[in-house]
Each structure stands twice: as structure tokens, then as C-alpha cells.
Simulated scan of single mutants.
Amino acid sequence: MSVLLGYVDHAEELASRFLQCFPKNRVSAQAALNHEYFSSLPPRLWELQDMSSIFTVPNVKLQTESGDSIQVCARKNSHGKASSGSKH
């Protein structure tokens, strides 16, 4: 597994569940969506209709990572809680 997965909360565990040799041992897509890896995303993301932009959700924006990749994150809300993880 990539060393970088260790820097993202719950990423290594979820990836290992996807990378099972036998299909019956792999996590399903639906079960994966309920994994802790996605727990810090704003609940409003789960309510979006198909083809709706994630950027209609308040505080969701793109944030560059080191290298060429881009990630989606959100700023802290008025209650001081992050509405989305910056590591997803």
C-alpha cells in the first residue's frame, strides 16, 4: 500500500477493504459510502441529485495538494466544526 494513504484518516483501511483478492471479501460500493473515510463530508453532499455540482454545497471548494492533484474540502462552519475533510 502507498505510504501516502497513512496520512489520510481511514484511507488505508478502506483501500485494503477494496483490494481484497476474492470478490466476496471486498467491500461493496454502498458499504464503502458508509465508511468512516467519508464521515467528515457535509451531509448535504449525500442529498445532491445526479449531475448536480458539489460546489452548490456551502463551503465546498477545491484545494490544491502537493503535486498536480486537486482535492475537495470545506472550511469550518460557524460552530467551529469542519463541514468537510480536507484530505478527501
Rank of each mutant, 00 (worst) to 15 (best):
Y37C: 01
L4K: 12
K24E: 13
E47L: 12
L45R: 09
Q49W: 13
A11K: 01
R75H: 12
S86P: 01
S78G: 11
A29H: 01
A32S: 06
F18R: 10
S40F: 13
A29K: 03
H35L: 13
S86Q: 06
F55D: 08
L19I: 02
A82E: 08
A74G: 12
A15W: 01
A82D: 15
F55G: 03
G67W: 05
T64P: 03
V8F: 09
M1H: 06
E47P: 00
G80P: 00
A32D: 04
Q63C: 03
A31S: 14
G6P: 00
N34Q: 12
A74S: 09
E13R: 14
Q71E: 10
Q30M: 11
M51I: 09
H10L: 14
S2W: 13
C21G: 09
L48F: 12
L5V: 09
E65G: 09
A11R: 02
E13P: 12
W46M: 14
A74H: 03
V60E: 00
K24D: 14
S66H: 15
A82G: 07
H88E: 00
E12I: 00
T64C: 05
V60W: 02
W46P: 07
C21Q: 14
A29T: 02
R26I: 09
V27I: 07
H35S: 11
L19T: 13
L62S: 08
A74Q: 03
D68N: 15
L19S: 10
P42Y: 10
F55A: 05
T56F: 03
Q20F: 04
N25S: 10
G85P: 01
K24I: 11
Q71L: 15
R17E: 09
D68C: 13
S39I: 12
A11L: 06
S40Q: 10
E36R: 13
F18E: 06
Q71I: 06
A29I: 04
S66D: 09
F55Y: 14
L33Q: 07
Q20Y: 14
S16L: 13
S53L: 03
V27P: 05
G80Y: 06
D68R: 15
Y7S: 14
H79L: 14
A82R: 10
S78I: 15
R75V: 11
A32K: 06
S69I: 03
T56G: 04
L14G: 06
V27Q: 01
V8P: 00
S2G: 02
K61H: 12
V72W: 02
L48V: 07
H35T: 03
Q30V: 10
Q30Y: 10
